[in-house]
Design a binder for these strands. Structure first.
Lengths: 152, 152
DNA sequence: TGAATTCATTTAACATGTTAAGTATACTCG
DNA sequence: CGAGTATACTTAACATGTTAAATGAATTCA
């Protein structure tokens, strides 16, 4: 299979991953939009909902966003009063973020809709296959990331 | 599992798909960058390399890009003389695109680098697991897309 | 201590993603 | 034929992705 001129388009893994992601997001996006949120804003709110306080670096890791995107999203969420910012007294470089009461209410309103869509997807594709997919995906990026760390 | 307050962050499928995709793209992006291309521009060139001539709609389907993105990318590729545009004599609404000689040379230069990275990834993760992943992904978006078409 | 380096975040610049609206051509059907 | 509708892009506007550079604070270490 590695001998051919160029891999089939149908076997481009980044594209296949994109198609799968898009199939899922096509369901979540309209729901989030009704709540006035983008996918990425929701990822940040969701990460914040799990912690009392969390600094920007940790938030970036948990929401899987690059720093510049996170900066812009936090500026928006602050402006909308969903998120509050405070300084870290031990390290003046860091900002620490938390959901406001308004942010928490938004989270409580969106979470059930999200869970409903997720359950639907789960029942359509099958719990077992979904678990298989999770496992393969984690193994895939685990393998590649480990190889990258080893090589530098 | 559907009874909990909110699904674990680690079990957010869109995020897991994104992480897997990012692990792969982290390898391809620097290579493409050295050739002066973005991922999406390369997707378009790759799709064009498989056909003599192809219209924008078909190109959008094959490169999995939305029309507005494709419009901008084609404007760039035309400006750089990698792609030529001509009209469809049977339908004045359509534009038909093809690689120029210069575009073909670029493709021939990038394709081996792409294939090399792909083979490396394949050998690190394992051919069998990769095939498993392809199959699961295709089944996943096939299932969801079919369900969406059925419901409307 | 203080110069050099590292780290956390932000800003800048440009490409793409996403939705809505616009434009021109093709089709449909009375 | 002609009004209405559908199709194929294109443009617009705003959000995010990506890379590089800037800023300011912490850390290292000669």
């Amino acid at each position: 299979m590695s001998g051919k001129a160029l891999r089939d388009f149908e076997h481009s893994l980044p594209m296949e991953l994109l198609k799968a992601r898009e199939a899922a997001m096509a369901r979540f996006r309209p729901m989030l939009r009704e709540h006035g949120l983008t996918e990425q804003q929701w990822r940040v709110i969701r990460a914040l909902a799990e912690y009392e306080k969390i600094d920007a670096s940790e938030l970036a890791r948990r929401s899987f966003l690059l720093a510049p995107s996170l900066t812009r999203i936090l500026q928006f969420l602050e402006k909308e009063k969903f998120v509050s910012r405070s300084g870290d007294s031990n390290d003046q470089r860091r900002s620490v973020f938390a959901l406001t009461a308004r942010g928490r209410r938004l989270f409580d309103k969106v979470a059930p809709d999200s869970e409903a869509l997720y359950s639907e997807m789960e029942s359509q594709f099958g719990v077992h296959k979904l678990e298989q997919l999770y496992a393969l995906l984690a193994e895939f990026y685990g393998t590649l990331d480990a190889a990258d760390r080893a090589t530098g």
